[in-house]
């Protein structure tokens, strides 16, 4: 069984606040799911031939500046919960 402390540690890494009840349920659920993952220990030691992937050049674009689509930046900022003068407001971090 995965411990309460472990669940709380992972939740902190994930930046999730969990209630006491959620931690308990998470312990139970994660334990059964992680137990299921033990199945992967039985994977036969197969030699996997390198699988052909598409050419990298297809995935890359030239390092060129693209014209900005007008209005999108404003709409993106409009979607933020807290903003000022066209900027997204963040709490002080220092």
């Amino acid at each position: 069984m995965i411990s309460k402390e472990e669940v709380e540690h992972i939740a902190k890494l994930a930046r999730l606040e969990l209630t006491e009840k959620e931690v308990g349920k998470m312990q139970k659920d994660l334990t059964s799911i992680l137990d299921y993952f033990n199945l992967l220990k039985n994977v036969p030691d197969v030699k996997v031939a390198s699988v052909k992937t598409s050419k990298t050049s297809e995935w890359m674009r030239g390092d060129q500046e693209k014209p900005r689509i007008s209005g999108v930046a404003e709409k993106l900022i409009a979607g933020a919960p807290d903003k000022k003068d066209g900027y997204i407001k963040v709490k002080t971090i220092l």
Binding site: A14, L16, M26, L30, T92
Partner: peptide, 30 residues
Amino acid sequence: DLLDVYLKSKGHGFGEEVKRRIMIGTYALS
């Protein structure tokens, strides 16, 4: 503070299954 905003927004905003998967993913990558 900023961390508190993260914790509360994600904690309250995400549903049970999403939280579960974020937890599994974070665990498996830790």
